[in-house]
């Protein structure tokens, strides 16, 4: 057999065998990986809009996804909003829950962040940051409390807290929420969030 035909045969068979192996692995793991992603989102929705029984995706664009949450009686109890913005190092991806008219923020959770460990990364911490985001009044723009408040009771309903030493991370979370809320308002006006009420 000539050298070049041997080369072709070897490369083709190596390619074919690896392709066959990979498609098997790909098919075997595909469902599981998709399920993991779905579970992550579903868990986050239940965290931010408590009492969610079912949820459905109402709107999707780059960096903004809106899920409608319904309770057992199929009543719309709020929206779970998936949004992302630039943090101190890299993107911060978060999700928060609002009431159907966007005047109230129930809760916030951080899905992905690469902030400084021990400082900005505290945005994922309940005691240091997330508890200060519970039940906020978003009927007018939220502001940042600086210097940081020690307990959630010190804050007015329109204020959220700063993490000492990580103002930029706290600010970018606030900005991401604020910008996505504005966007949601206009989406609602255009009637793109389903026909509630």
């Amino acid at each position: 057999m000539s050298l070049s035909s041997r080369m072709v045969i070897v490369l083709t068979s190596v390619g074919l065998i690896s392709g066959a192996l990979l498609s098997t692995v790909g098919i075997l793991t595909k469902e599981r990986i998709a399920l993991n992603k779905q579970l992550e989102i579903e868990n986050a929705i239940i965290t931010v809009v408590q009492g969610t029984h079912t949820s459905e995706k109402l709107y999707e664009e780059k960096d903004l996804v809106v899920y409608g949450s319904k309770d057992e009686n199929n009543q719309l109890i709020g929206f779970a909003v998936y949004a992302s913005g630039t943090g101190f190092q890299d993107k911060i991806i978060l999700m928060y829950g609002t009431n159907p008219s966007f005047t109230k923020i129930y809760r916030l959770t951080i899905l992905e962040q690469k902030e400084t460990p021990g400082l900005g990364a505290k945005i994922t911490d309940k005691d240091a940051f997330l508890q200060f985001w519970e039940n906020k009044d978003s009927s007018k723009p939220l502001t940042l409390r600086k210097p940081a408040a020690r307990s959630p009771e010190e804050l007015s309903p329109f204020e959220v807290n700063t993490i000492t030493g990580a103002t930029i991370s706290s600010e970018s979370v606030l900005n991401t929420v604020r910008l996505s809320l504005e966007k949601l308002m206009s989406l609602k006006k255009e009637g793109k969030l389903g026909n509630e009420e």
Partner: peptide, 20 residues
Amino acid sequence: ASYIVVIATFVTMADRFLAA
């Protein structure tokens, strides 16, 4: 080239396994 394909195959397996 053959080594790279062999290696890449096993790497993909490891990657998919971890992700799953």
